[in-house]
Amino acid sequence: MVDPDRVLVPTLGRPREDEALAYALETFPDADVTLLAVVTPLDAPLSEGGVLERSEERTARARASATDLLESVADPTATERIRVETADGRPGTVIPQYASTEGVDHVVMYGHGTDTSGFVRRILGRGIAATVVERTDEPVTVLE
């Protein structure tokens, strides 16, 4: 496998996403990395829940959270090859769409939901990572 030029690391504001970013930076030291803050719709089952917040406030909060994640993980010399973007929508749709339209070569993400009980997975549906793997043409590394 050839090392990718463009790597996508989606973030939903969930625990352990710092591991996905650290992995991407270490494994692909020459790649440009996009940290994509996905803002889940309020009516989605996995929404972060800001019911009274306006869309702009939720997007600004997601971008700030992703920027904080970047600053906590990345070496200051590496930040020149990392950009933070935001996208609104359901993660299982937005992430594959972004990867295909933005020329991403590889996706690295934490396996959201893999540590939940089978009961929770049945209620919420299958994990986001499984959906992304199925819908993305580019290689996807899922960390657990």
Rank of each mutant, 00 (worst) to 15 (best):
L52C: 08
L8D: 03
L35S: 08
T136A: 13
S100Q: 14
S55C: 12
R122T: 09
L52Y: 13
L69Y: 05
T40A: 08
G125R: 07
G89C: 05
A87T: 04
A130L: 10
L42C: 03
M1T: 08
V104A: 06
G125K: 10
A60E: 12
I123N: 04
T101W: 03
D88S: 14
G13N: 05
S65Y: 11
E48K: 10
T79Y: 03
Q97K: 12
T77N: 09
V120R: 12
G89K: 03
A130I: 06
L25Q: 00
D30V: 06
A66P: 07
T40G: 05
R81I: 12
P139D: 08
V2I: 14
A20T: 01
E17R: 06
G127W: 00
E138Q: 15
V104P: 00
T93L: 14
P4D: 04
R90I: 14
R16N: 12
V33H: 00
E144D: 14
T34W: 09
E57W: 13
M109A: 05
D43P: 01
G113D: 00
V104W: 02
T67F: 09
H112K: 06
R58N: 07
A99Q: 01
E102S: 15
I82T: 01
A74V: 02
S72Y: 05
G103R: 01
T141W: 05
E71A: 15
Y23L: 08
P45N: 07
S72T: 09
I82N: 04
A129M: 04
P29T: 00
L42P: 01
E80G: 15
I128S: 02
G50P: 06
P91S: 08
G89E: 02
R83S: 15
A60R: 13
T101L: 10
T131M: 10
M109C: 05
P139I: 11
A37G: 12
D68V: 11
V9C: 05
H106Q: 13
H112V: 13
R135I: 09
T86R: 04
P29I: 02
R90H: 13
G125E: 00
V7C: 02
S117L: 07
R6T: 11
E17Y: 09
L12I: 14
V84F: 12
S55M: 14
P91D: 01
S55E: 15
P10C: 09
L25R: 00
G113S: 03
V73C: 05
P29C: 02
R83E: 15
E48H: 14
L42W: 02
A129E: 02
Y110I: 11
T131E: 15
L52Q: 11
P139C: 13
T101I: 11
V94A: 13
G89A: 05
G118N: 08
E80R: 15
I95V: 15
R58L: 14
L42E: 08
V140Y: 03
